[in-house]
Every structure is written in structure tokens, then in C-alpha cells.
Computed example of a mutant assay.
Amino acid sequence: MNIKYEVVQPTPKLPFKYYLHDENSQKIVTPHWHRSIELGYLTSNNYLEFKDNDITYHYQKGDIWVINSRDVHSSQLNDSKNLMQFCLIIDYDFLKQAYPNINQLTFSLHGRPTSIKQLVAYQELEKELRMMIQLLQDQRDDGSNLSLTGHIYLIMANLIQNFSHKSDSTQTQLNETLIDQALGTINTYYMGDLNSNNLAKQLNTSVTTLNQQFHQAVQMPIGKYITTVRLLNAQKELLNTTNNIDSIAMNCGFSSTKSFIRNFKQWKGTTPFHYRKKFN
């Protein structure tokens, strides 16, 4: 099980891709990332556990959140009954053309804000999203695409003005080829003796360059990413095989069973043994 890089193809004639999740949707969305900026909006009485760059958030009815470009994220619903969740993924190239400095911004919105200024902006954001949902549900060929695109501009202007800050100015230009090679190598060889030093050697680059580029692209240190991939695969083995804990630790690239148990407990709050017992 890998942390998937998702290539986002916008809806035809629109600068975004969208999902209207209902009770038939998957309860678990596995870790993935993409270049686009994503907004989520939960309008039903469900409880959503969301992870963004390994930080856990809990969302309820009326909550809106933003996922920055290249953030690794995943989610899990407690119950999909009567679910209504709007997911809007805005094309990065469209944003770059509309706002050339978009790559210099980081957005911070994880549910309802507390300041008066942001609350007012939040209400406007919620209004725009609701109007988009209505347009998408009643879409016709009478200019609705133009209206939808107009709402995207208003939403992004709101986010830029009220929910963003400048990213680290010391960031260097991103080498996407290097990042793709690093991700591919990790996802293929995570079970071996893999770390930032030997990965840099395999990719003919310095450890410093690789660490800088990787953290800039994925917002996660290489070591943590490798451990996360190993844990995801260990979780899969725990639930789908009868392999013992020692074998799973070895199969997934952990240096020892003790290391596997320690990392798994930090991740899930319980030991691999008790996790398997609970879900099997």
C-alpha cells in the first residue's frame, strides 16, 4: 500500500474536479497527494477523521478545510449514512495562471475559525460553496460553467486574503523529476535497507538536496515518509494475513520487531497485536 500521487484531471470545460460524496462513498480514503489545492465541506451530521501531513483533525457538519498543494492526506468516516460531503480540487495550472505567486502561499483552514474577521470570510466561503453545489446539481448549458468558474475566483480570492500566509522564502525551485524518482523508489523498495543516505546515492544527488526537495514537495521528511509507507503495508498485512508480528516487521522493512511495535503504537495508539485483535 503506497502513498499515492494522484494526477488530477479537471472536469471538461471547468478548472476543477469535484466530488459529491454520499452514503455510497468509501468510508476510508487512503493516503495520497496531488499538486492541486483541495477544499472539503461537510454538510451532513457525520463525523470525519482527517489526516493532513500526519496531523489529525476532526470535522463535523458545517466544517470547511483546505489541503495545500502536495500535502499527504487521508480520511476516515465513522458512518457514511446520510453522508453529504463536497470535495473541490482546483487545477494548479489554472491557479498559477490566475495568481502567479500561488506557490508562495500556504493556506490554513481546518474547520471553523475563531476570529471575527475570519468568521465573516468563512460565512462567505460557505455561501459560495453552497451555490456551487446547487449549480452542479442543476447544471445546464445556459452559462452554468461560466458561473462555476466565477465562484472559483471568488473562493480563491477569499482564501488568499483571509486564510493564507507566505511560505518560506528560502525554498528552492522544485525538481519534480527527482521527487517522482524518490517516491517511486520508496514505494517499490520500502522493505529493504532504505534511508535518505542510500536513497540519495541511488538517485545521484546529495542528501542535503534530496531532503530539501522532498520536504518542499511532500511536506514530510524522507525518513518519516518511508516509515509511513512501511506502516501502511504492515497494517495491510495485519488485517489480511496470518503472518506473525516478527514476520510482518521484517517484510515491511523495520530494523526490528521492537522498532515496528514502537512506530505502530505511535501511529495507531495501540500495539499491532491488539490492533489485529480488534479489527479481525
Score class of each variant (00 low, 15 high):
residue 133 I to T: 10
residue 101 N to R: 10
residue 7 V to R: 11
residue 139 Q to W: 08
residue 63 D to Y: 00
residue 192 G to R: 06
residue 89 I to P: 04
residue 113 P to H: 04
residue 148 L to D: 01
residue 104 Q to G: 02
residue 161 Q to N: 13
residue 255 S to P: 04
residue 184 G to W: 03
residue 132 M to E: 03
residue 147 S to L: 15
residue 10 P to Y: 02
residue 5 Y to A: 13
residue 210 L to N: 02
residue 23 E to K: 06
residue 251 N to T: 08
residue 276 R to F: 02
residue 111 G to N: 03
residue 77 L to F: 13
residue 224 K to W: 04
residue 93 D to Q: 13
residue 139 Q to H: 14
residue 90 I to G: 00
residue 78 N to I: 12
residue 178 L to K: 06
residue 192 G to H: 07
residue 262 R to K: 15
residue 28 I to S: 06
residue 138 D to V: 04
residue 23 E to S: 10
residue 140 R to F: 04
residue 271 T to P: 02
residue 127 K to I: 10
residue 7 V to H: 10
residue 106 T to F: 08
residue 86 F to E: 07
residue 135 L to E: 10
residue 163 F to M: 04
residue 172 T to V: 13
residue 38 E to K: 05
residue 207 V to G: 02
residue 15 P to T: 01
residue 157 A to I: 13
residue 172 T to W: 09
residue 87 C to M: 13
residue 148 L to T: 00
residue 236 K to Q: 11
residue 210 L to G: 02
residue 71 D to E: 08
residue 110 H to V: 08
residue 156 M to W: 05
residue 204 N to F: 08
residue 167 S to H: 00
residue 122 Y to N: 05
residue 256 S to F: 05
residue 214 F to K: 03
residue 100 P to R: 05
residue 16 F to G: 00
residue 103 N to C: 13
residue 94 F to A: 01
residue 28 I to T: 11
residue 273 F to G: 12
residue 184 G to F: 04
residue 184 G to R: 04
residue 176 E to L: 10
residue 130 R to S: 12
residue 270 T to Q: 13
residue 79 D to K: 03
residue 124 E to Q: 14
residue 187 N to M: 06
residue 43 T to D: 05
residue 56 T to W: 05
residue 268 K to Q: 13
residue 248 I to C: 08
residue 79 D to A: 00
residue 38 E to Y: 03
residue 229 V to R: 02
residue 119 L to R: 08
residue 220 M to S: 06
residue 132 M to C: 06
residue 152 I to L: 05
residue 233 N to Y: 04
residue 77 L to C: 06
residue 152 I to M: 02
residue 171 Q to K: 14
residue 259 S to Q: 12
residue 139 Q to T: 11
residue 144 S to D: 15
residue 164 S to Q: 05
residue 80 S to V: 12
residue 79 D to N: 11
residue 188 T to R: 12
residue 234 A to G: 12
residue 51 K to I: 08
residue 190 Y to T: 03
residue 112 R to C: 07
residue 229 V to I: 13
residue 219 Q to I: 08
residue 243 N to D: 14
residue 70 R to G: 00
residue 127 K to P: 06
residue 75 S to E: 09
residue 109 L to H: 00
